[in-house]
Amino acid sequence: MRRRAFVQQSVLASGALLTSAMSGARDKRDPAFTPAEQPFNMKYAFHDGMFENHAGKDFIEQIKFGHSMGFRAIEDNGMMGRPVDQQKKIGETLAKLGMSMGVFVVTSQNWHWKTSLATGKKEFTDLMIKDCKEAVEVAKRCGAKWMTVVPGNYDNSQSHEFQTANVINALRKGADILAPHGLVMVLEALSDNPDLFLRHTDQSYMICQAVNSPACKFLFDMYHMQRNEGDIIANIDRVWSETGYFQIGDNPGRNEPGTGEMNYKNIFKHIHAKGYKGILGMEHGNAIDGKAGEIALIKAYREADAFL
């Protein structure tokens, strides 16, 4: 028996968790489904390590396993730090399986945690421009379209208005590099640190409007926005025209849907009904360790995805 087939059968056999996720369903949600033949309604993108207990440490094998479970996308924050040949191999694997590449972070050095576009300093803007140019080549290798940008921390020596203008000016320069290639930087508002400049949906919407480029959109990370402001579905509607990408994570805990307070079945149903065809990144951990946790995660997504 081939390894992939064996792994798939072992997952389906362990506690019947996947089939129990389908209980009460009809027709295409038959409990006897073959995962590879039953992709999810939406493109949920897992990341490296999420299925390593079943597929091993090799991300390529994890990608193949995720595909066999019905997932049709990945994301990889650290793609820019991977060797060139690995970037290409990931892209080739995705193309062969008919999967999509989600976001990677525009920088291999994580400079945005130590610096800030809000300062207006040329050295920081130049660094972002350099990284955007490199990101174009990385995107070609792995088949990516979206890349995450975080403006960095506040500069409390300047007014909020001047800081905002500095961020807009820097992002316009980055967007000018990406736009000719059909690539999109997606701005992520975060909740990890109160010193971070970009934190809210209205602020992100305003900046995207001001940059005024198809290469600059909002990354709506629903975990962070639940922590910062709540009112997820209404805010999705408010910033819809400037949203290019979604990320998932239940709160509290930042794990898979169903482990916190958020009703992801309703959220997914709403996003799907609005016609969204893009990727939803699984930017969270597994609530349970080991193989059992990976099975529980797949079960959670089957349950939340059963909104039709």
Rank of each mutant, 00 (worst) to 15 (best):
V150T: 09
Y264D: 05
S213D: 02
S20A: 15
H200Y: 15
S14P: 00
V136P: 11
K43R: 15
N41D: 11
I60K: 02
P194I: 03
E256G: 04
G102D: 08
N266T: 11
K130N: 05
C216K: 07
I236F: 09
A118N: 04
M206T: 14
G24Q: 01
Q209S: 06
M22Q: 14
F46I: 14
F65P: 00
N41R: 15
Q87V: 05
F162M: 14
K277C: 02
L280F: 08
G56F: 05
M99F: 10
Y301K: 03
V103W: 04
D195H: 05
K173P: 01
P252R: 05
N228Y: 01
M50S: 12
K96Q: 14
Y154F: 14
G102F: 09
H47I: 05
I90T: 06
S100W: 13
M206L: 13
M42E: 13
L183M: 06
L117Y: 02
S100H: 13
P31N: 10
G253S: 07
D176M: 08
T119H: 08
E261W: 00
N41F: 02
A32T: 14
D192P: 00
D176P: 02
F246K: 08
N41I: 01
I74M: 08
Q87S: 07
H54Y: 15
Q203K: 09
G174F: 12
A16K: 14
Y264N: 02
P151D: 07
E92I: 04
F197C: 00
V103L: 10
G91A: 11
P252Q: 04
M147I: 06
G293A: 07
I74Q: 02
M42W: 08
K57H: 13
I168G: 01
Y205G: 00
A292E: 14
K217N: 06
D76C: 13
I233D: 05
T34M: 10
G174D: 10
Q209W: 04
C208N: 06
Q163W: 00
G15T: 12
P31I: 14
K43W: 10
Q226D: 03
N235Y: 06
A273I: 02
T164I: 00
Y205L: 14
A273Q: 12
K130F: 09
Y264A: 03
F51P: 00
Y264I: 06
P83Y: 10
N156M: 02
K274I: 08
E229L: 01
V167E: 08
Y276K: 02
F218R: 01
P214C: 09
N169L: 11
K28L: 15
G290I: 10
L171F: 10
R3A: 15
L12A: 12
Q109I: 05
D58I: 04
H200N: 11
D231K: 12
P194S: 01
S100Y: 12
H47R: 12
P151W: 03
K64H: 13
A287T: 01
N166A: 01
D231W: 04
A287P: 00
M206W: 10
C142Y: 12
Q9V: 09
E37I: 00
